[in-house]
Write a protein that binds this DNA or RNA. Structure first.
Lengths: 342, 342
DNA sequence: TGCCAAAATGACAACGCTGTCAATTTTAAT
DNA sequence: ATTAAAATTGACAGCGTTGTCATTTTGGCA
């Protein structure tokens, strides 16, 4: 039942070291030998023992994904994107949700990377922005790739993937302004997250360019949740009855805003336009469907994983195929429309 | 930087075997010795090497979770529930989404369990219902726990956790009937899933008990998706204008039905009651909020993980704390109401 | 054909832990 | 105090691979 490298070696009548060379794609193995070995591997359905490889070679063939649970779709797309790369590379994925709030978070992470002898780590926001985490990983000499909200990748940079939320927000805002909106509210996500700041900055830049005065009372602090969307939408509508549009920091907040509008009997988009971010399945399942800025988390995840693998191998050459800056695209649906001249 | 068991042994001036005993909670270690060792462990911040433990002891300290992506919330709650148990037991979790449709799925799974030398596996529906998968795991001598839709656990049964969807559907249906509904449509989930059948059976039982004739034209085949909900709700409403209530096989379908009703300008719940299953965050974020049958996936996941760990250890005794049958509870919200006598 | 460097292969230790079994210490009963 | 039994501890092999280095084979060239 259990097939070891020795069995393969016997069947192929070579040494175990040669088998090892073949399964690791090491050079200087004659084609004929390699073929013999491959046939034996297939024949016996040999699976190298991960633990033994890890122990002997100190490569764990396992990478980790660390996240502080933003929303379910985000996390799942991330996982799936990374897993699809792992599959082709023969790696396994260990997931590690952790709470930003937790004081021991860094210690816990450290324990995890040391225990499992992870080959590398993909960090998603907001953990990817945490310098304590980064320092710890540098200390421990762990490879990592960070997914960050930011405008552009330094071409030298070998450990970051950027999502240009600034530009995305700028586009969303511009679109609304073109539709005639002048009083556009901004419902923030978590204050600590860089994506919130980037999106806010994009929104402000768009207003300024269009000569619209920035009204701080239209900018509400909140968090990336449905209920934050409900609350903040309610209060901004109550306080400013000239608001004609809302930019929500993600689709969940936007869905909350939609809910609030419904509660207050406000017609979307006739009386109020609402837009989100992320293009999560969510945004297609609300009524009306959400205008949003689309980012393919799964694609981003794949590129992050590829970058991680190329780092692990110490390859710089193949990096060129890897996209390091993603700019979300505006997807116009039914939750936004022309401003009502009233 | 790297701390091995030998370092700990030296510092505590005992043999490495004794250290091993202590960190594995083996019996027959004197308290004083154990304390000495623990102090050394703390002092050096020793983390046992998982790979070495795996190789030497053929315990991998890793369990797997296998799922065929139902909805995002389900998967994530499952992961979190299991992870919370893993944390206390010092295990890691490997996730393995796989597609039921994929012909090689069983082979792929086999490769995965053999490669990673998984200690055990949690199987979620519909994979938990797949006899090919089960047979393969039995062949490979892998421990597993299945989460299944079914009425009751055989007390002897040591590898299943049941969710009583039958009863849940029965309750939902009864509730609607008490509200005066007589023409209740049923929007099925995937035909192959046992949960669909169980829920359908519960629905039928309720109708029969209440002397309502079963109208097969009110029972629509579908799948567990928003769009299936939209389509099937549309067609059942178009075909039967006396339908006053819809039982959807999960919250996503229900949300789709809500969407369809909105499209058709049907007032919920005044003209039509709609209920779902699962009590996913979803069900609190639709308008109106969904009446649903609540099951705490996270709790179920935790019990599944506990059961798996107790199996792995060969313990039968602690099983008693583990709940093996869960019956979802009716949660009445705003998407259902009294039937309109028309 | 013979010789040599380069290429290919193999032997064997090592990775860090646990299992087995033997050696030692403690306990309790005489 | 003595002794056997029980409890505790330790020595050492082995888990299935990869790394290192030695050995064998190959191919090119005089």
């Amino acid at each position: 039942m259990k097939v070891t490298i020795t069995d393969v070696a016997k069947l192929a009548s070579v040494s175990i070291k040669t088998v090892s060379r073949v399964i690791n794609n090491e050079p200087s193995v004659r084609k004929a030998t390699s073929d013999k070995v491959m046939i034996a591997v297939k024949e016996l359905n040999y699976q190298p023992n991960l633990a033994a490889r890890n122990l002997a070679g100190s490569k764990s063939f396992t990478i980790g994904l660390v996240y502080d649970n933003p929303n379910a779709y985000y996390v799942l797309d991330m996982q799936n994107g990374i897993l699809s790369c792992c599959k082709t590379e023969g790696y396994e994925l260990l997931i590690h949700p952790c709470s930003y709030a937790n004081k021991d978070m860094v210690e816990e992470l450290k324990t995890m990377v040391r225990r499992a002898r992870i080959s590398g780590l993909v960090l998603t926001p907001p953990l990817s922005e945490n310098s304590e985490v980064i320092n710890m990983l540098d200390d421990q000499n762990i490879h990592y790739v960070r997914i960050l909200s930011g405008q552009e990748a330094d071409p030298q940079q070998t450990d970051c993937i950027y999502v240009n939320d600034h530009n995305a927000a700028y586009e969303v805002s511009n679109h609304l302004i073109k539709q005639g909106h002048k009083h556009i509210a901004f419902l923030s996500g978590d204050k600590g997250h860089k994506s919130t700041h980037e999106r806010l900055a994009g929104y402000k830049e768009s207003l300024i360019e269009n000569n619209i005065e920035i009204d701080e009372s239209l900018i509400l602090e909140g968090e990336y949740s449905f209920s934050s969307g409900v609350e903040n939408a309610k209060s901004v509508i109550n306080l400013n009855n000239n608001v004609t549009a809302i930019i929500a920091c993600n689709d969940e907040i936007a869905a909350g805003a939609l809910f609030a509008a419904r509660l207050m009997d406000i017609k979307i988009p006739e009386q109020l336009s609402i837009s989100g971010f992320e293009n999560s399945p969510f945004s297609r399942q609300t009524w009306p469907k959400l205008t949003t800025a689309s980012q393919s988390i799964e694609t981003i995840a794949q590129h992050a994983a590829k970058l991680l693998f190329s780092k692990t191998r110490g390859q710089r050459n193949k990096d060129k195929e890897i996209i390091k800056t993603f700019t979300p695209e505006l997807v116009i649906r039914d939750s936004t429309g022309p401003a009502n001249k009233s």
